[in-house]
Amino acid sequence: MKINVKINGIKKALDVSPDEYLVETLRNNGYMSLRKGCDTGSCGMCTIHLDGEAVLSCVLISAKADGHEITTIEGVQEEAKDVAKYLVDEGVDQCGFCGTGTIMSILYLEKCVDNPTDEDILHYLRGNLCRCTGYAGQLRAIKRYLEAKNDEGSK
């Protein structure tokens, strides 16, 4: 079946099968940033934004995206780079496989919450699993990123 979507601002008509999931559709169309970690909606690695809301592309049937706007990290490279710098600086990039999903959740958090507390950060990111870092360094990095952005904004 055909679906009409906007991916990272560009209109696309995609051919999908009725039982295809969005993570596959997007990877098949060259959006390689999407990582598949679990197949059960449990790990957060395939997180994208659908009409601005963070969703898991591995449990979302592609047809559901028809008429909607999809954002992958390929579409927010500058914003992602700003966050990534802090994660890399803290050494919590590690294997990187969960990193793109984590960054998409951080960008969603920023959109939803002004001046997020530690609790907000954990709440918005708890669906993003990471086996390498133990999370503590990620929290340090995210806080530093948000602080820096706040400083920037208040200038």
Binding site: G41, S42, G44, T47, L50, E53, A54, V55, L56, V59, L60, S105, Y108, H123, Y124, L125, R126, G127, N128
Partner: peptide, 12 residues
């Protein structure tokens, strides 16, 4: 609802 897995699943 707020303890169910993660926000990206709850949005679906």
């Amino acid at each position: 609802i707020k303890d169910i897995v993660g926000i990206q699943l709850r949005n679906i």
